[in-house]
Design a protein around this nucleic acid. Structure first.
Length: 570
DNA sequence: AGTTTCGGCGCC
DNA sequence: AAAGGGCGCCGAAACT
């Protein structure tokens, strides 16, 4: 069961396949077959399929009813390996990797295309450069050798395997879709926003709130225009820098209440209103296009429909099919648990070794029981808070959990200095653009930004004014980024292993993974499978912890809920 | 007229 | 009281 085979769809619609040996090179001749689905379906003994791009191949396999257990995505691995080697920005396509191997001219990557409502256009990547199987396997064999040269070869192998598994999960989720009741969604919209008026203008409730805002100012004000709102407050003798809610809310003015309410509802209307429903929900499913590893930290993104930003009130529209349930599972305090696992801070590991509320335990030890302060301190340490109560709390945290804080401090310092920063499994933070520039600026030397090639480098168009303190604030921003990167990214490493294990556990059931959001997963399953799924999630979480971080006392508990409606999960 | 950036806010 | 990390999305404003 250790068979690995390489696969490449041929340009004429057939498929090329070849068995691979331990070195990653073919052990037999490349075979051509007419049908992609049959080629895979007829070889259940293959334990891992090696291909250029999961997004190219797997949706087509799924469309013919074929699932695979494991794969290896060469272009994804190329991206991770290049990053690890400090070569961010080099073209990552298989064609480029092949050209580097052979010393030829390296082709730039084809441009990405945006998703369009209702289509799965970008999944098929028709613009990608075709690489024949005989060439593709050379790239693969070379990548195997490059894993050996990584800082931690075993972890790097786990990373590329895990992200390939994530891509299988993403493709399967894209196919399944999130169960969505358009009827419930419309009911929620009507309750919140009132009737729609003909002509596509604001619904009744928004129009009323806009009138209330205008009445409070004594003149016509459009609450959706920040410039208009700032001017209106200025005329009322109140200076504000922006119209952000936290800045508005503290003001003493009769317009505040309807304005804040307007902003909240306006957001629902424009981002998840009737036109969103029209664009993104088909046949009882919302299909955000999940993209594994879509961010530098390894978190996923969705392409289209704002799939990872579904407002809480709109989650009432996520409803299981009749007789089915949603198992909604949320990792408890994932980021501080991951920080415990990667920093090996004894105190934090002890706290994270229990399943009980981690923030409460931290507050008992360092914040005299004030959970809110403890949570603020932990998140501040992870996000790089630099002012306010955060600093005071950070000092308390540092006294009790010195290794944990030192770990993120060191990441921040490395980031500021432009050194490579990696997650636990080896995903590497891109070096900040202009790191060298900033070093120069700190020495007081004005620096020009990179010049636009199309201007021929003649003008001062790209010049940046030199401002005292500017460069160091930029460096600090890179520090915050790197500080967060090691925690958020290592959490993403762990989450990939979790998904892979959960997918494996569900493979014999009707249950399907339908949603994943950083530390939260939803499985859609027949009611009678729900308890088995809950168990599978718990076991997958612990397995992922061991696989990712090795021997560690840190636990990764989940809060799970078996519900018919997503909104009932919390 | 078409494209890019900005402001604001949703989620974690 | 004041504001730190990662994203996507929308309309308006600011550009070419």
């Amino acid at each position: 069961m250790t068979d690995r085979w390489a696969l490449a769809p041929a340009e004429d619609g057939g498929v090329e396949i070849a068995p691979l040996g331990p070195d990653g090179l073919p052990t037999g001749p490349v075979r051509r077959e007419a049908d992609l689905g049959e080629a895979v379906r007829g070889r259940p003994e293959v334990a891992r399929w090696v291909w250029r791009s999961t997004a190219e191949v797997y949706p087509r396999l799924l469309a013919t009813g074929v699932r695979v257990e494991r794969c290896y995505d060469i272009e994804d691995a190329e991206t991770l390996l290049l990053g690890h080697e400090g070569r961010y920005g080099e073209p990552r396509s298989a064609a480029a990797a092949l050209a580097r191997l052979r010393g030829g001219p390296v082709p730039p990557d084809p441009p990405q295309r945006a998703a369009e409502p209702g289509s799965q256009s970008s999944l098929f990547e028709p613009q990608a450069v075709h690489v024949p199987l005989a060439d593709l396997v050379e790239v693969y064999a070379d990548q195997q050798r490059r894993h050996d040269r990584a800082a931690h070869p075993e972890r790097m192998r786990l990373l590329t395997a895990a992200e390939s598994a994530g891509m299988l999960v993403a493709a399967e989720m894209n196919r399944a879709g999130l169960p969505w009741s358009a009827e419930v969604h419309r009911r929620v919209l009507h309750e919140l926003l009132g009737e729609r008026y003909a002509g596509g203008g604001e619904p009744r409730r928004l129009a009323e709130l806009a009138d209330e805002v205008s009445a409070a100012f004594g003149r016509r004000v459009r609450p959706d225009l920040p410039a208009d709102v700032i001017k209106a407050f200025a005329q009322a003798g109140i200076k504000i820098r922006s119209t952000r809610r936290w800045e508005i809310e503290s003001l003493d003015h009769p317009a505040v209440k309807p304005l804040v309410e307007y902003k909240k509802l306006y957001r629902i209307w424009v981002a998840h209103g009737w036109s969103w429903l029209q664009d993104w929900v088909r046949e009882g499913r919302f299909r955000p296009e999940f993209l594994a590893g879509g961010t530098v930290t390894g978190r996923w993104v969705t392409n289209g429909g704002g799939g990872l930003q579904i407002p809480k009130v709109i989650r009432r529209a996520v409803v299981a099919d009749p007789g089915w349930r949603l198992v909604v599972a949320d990792a408890d305090q994932m980021e501080p648990r991951v920080l415990a696992a990667i920093s090996r801070d004894p105190g934090l590991m002890e706290v994270a070794g229990r399943e009980s509320d981690l923030y409460q335990s931290v507050s008992d030890r360092a914040f005299s029981g004030d959970r809110a302060q403890a949570k603020l301190a932990v998140l501040g340490a992870v996000y790089g808070q630099t002012s306010g109560d955060g600093l005071k709390n950070l000092a308390a945290l540092r006294r009790r959990f010195p290794k944990a804080v030192a770990y993120v401090d060191e990441a921040a310092r490395a980031g500021e200095e432009g050194r490579l920063v990696r997650t636990w499994l080896g995903r590497t933070c891109p070096p900040a653009a202009g790191a060298a520039d900033d070093a120069a600026e700190e020495a007081g030397i004005p620096v020009l930004e990179a010049e636009d090639e199309t201007t021929g480098g003649s003008g001062a168009q790209g010049a940046r004014e030199w401002v005292p303190g500017y460069a160091s604030s930029d460096a600090r921003a890179r520090g915050r980024f790197a500080r967060n990167f090691v925690v958020q990214g290592s959490a993403a490493d762990w989450a990939l292993l979790l998904l892979a294990a959960l997918r494996q556990a569900c493979s014999g059931m009707a249950a399907e993974l339908v949603f994943f959001q950083h530390d939260e997963v939803i499985v859609h399953c027949p009611e009678e499978e729900a308890e088995a799924v809950v168990t599978a999630i718990r076991e997958a979480a612990e397995l992922a912890g061991r696989l990712t971080f090795g021997q560690t006392p840190v636990r990764f508990p989940f809060t799970t809920a078996v519900v018919e409606c997503y909104a009932d999960a919390k």
